[in-house]
Computed example of a mutant assay.
Amino acid sequence: MTRFATVAEMALREMLRRRSVLVILAALPLAFYLSRRGDHLGQSVRFVCLGLGWALSTAALFAGSAAREIEPRLRLSGYRSHHLYVGRLAALWAVGVALAVPYFLLILVDQDGVRHGPVALMMAIMVAVSAPFGLALSAILPRELEGTLVLLVVVGLQMMTDPGSALARALPFWFSREIGTYAIDGVDSGYLARGVLHGVVCAVVLLAGVAVASSLRLRQRSHLKFVTPR
């Protein structure tokens, strides 16, 4: 547990160094919420959840990119690959919970006509999915700019694509639409079941992707340089 905690603490320290970025990311869900609160109160709940997912995924992307330099040295110190990505995920999930709680309290106070239990569940699944999604992008894409653009495309498609289409169901945040519909519109529990199932499957797939990508990348030992004797 000590090694997991050490990696988690290092990840938190690295994220706290980007204070201005963290402030912007923390305000992003609020901007999503206020953009729809005036005329579409129900949609504002879905939008704040998407804003939360975008913010946490971006933080995870930055955390994964920042860890590229130090991870090889930690591996040489005896850390295993699962120590690194599990510790980093724990830090990101803690940040996600700290970010989600104030927005859930905002919805709790500001909106009476929704099912608050499913809203809390939707946010919890969003935190669980967003952290490994951002880390997976950082493992696949070498630069933060490319990862940020991919996040922009994913969130944009999630907002604009027909929710019943196959493309929408393939996106990682589709569950928020189903659970949000159940929480806001009072539909049958089938929406809740589909949303939870989709969220759990996405979380498991993304966690497996992070584990595989991290293990393969760290086994390459690109930090070692072999000198050919003359």
Rank of each mutant, 00 (worst) to 15 (best):
M1D: 10
T6M: 06
V7I: 15
V7S: 04
A8R: 06
A8I: 03
A11V: 11
M15K: 03
R18D: 09
R18H: 13
R19F: 11
R19E: 04
R19T: 12
S20Y: 11
S20Q: 07
L22C: 05
L22A: 11
L22H: 05
V23T: 10
V23W: 11
I24E: 01
A26Y: 06
A26H: 03
A27M: 08
P29W: 15
A31E: 10
F32A: 07
Y33C: 01
Y33W: 12
L34T: 07
R36Y: 14
R36L: 11
R37P: 00
G38W: 10
G42V: 12
G42D: 12
S44T: 12
V45F: 00
R46F: 13
V48L: 09
V48N: 03
C49L: 13
G51L: 14
L52T: 13
G53V: 02
W54T: 09
W54R: 02
L56V: 15
A59I: 12
F62E: 02
G64C: 14
S65L: 06
A67C: 07
A67G: 09
R68C: 02
I70M: 03
I70F: 01
P72V: 14
R73W: 04
G78Y: 05
Y79C: 00
R80S: 02
S81R: 03
S81V: 08
G87E: 01
R88D: 00
A90T: 06
A90I: 04
V97I: 11
A100K: 04
A100I: 07
V101E: 00
Y103Q: 07
F104A: 08
I107K: 00
I107H: 03
D110S: 11
Q111R: 08
Q111I: 15
D112Q: 05
D112Y: 01
D112K: 05
R115H: 15
A120D: 07
L121T: 13
L121Q: 09
L121H: 10
L121M: 13
M122D: 09
A124W: 12
I125H: 00
M126L: 04
P132D: 07
G134S: 08
A136Q: 04
L137V: 12
L137I: 13
L137E: 04
S138G: 03
T148C: 01
L152R: 00
V153T: 06
V155L: 02
V155S: 01
G156K: 05
L157G: 06
Q158V: 06
M159E: 14
M160S: 08
D162M: 07
A166Q: 12
L167F: 14
L167Y: 14
L167E: 09
L171V: 15
F173H: 05
F175E: 08
F175R: 06
S176C: 10
S176I: 15
R177G: 11
R177S: 08
I179Q: 08
G180E: 06
G180K: 03
T181N: 06
A183I: 13
D185E: 07
G186W: 12
V187T: 13
V187M: 09
G190K: 04
A193S: 06
A193M: 02
G195N: 04
V196A: 07
G199E: 09
A203K: 11
V204R: 09
V205S: 04
V205I: 15
L206H: 10
L206V: 11
L206W: 15
L207P: 00
V210W: 05
R217V: 04
R219G: 14
R221K: 13
T228Q: 02
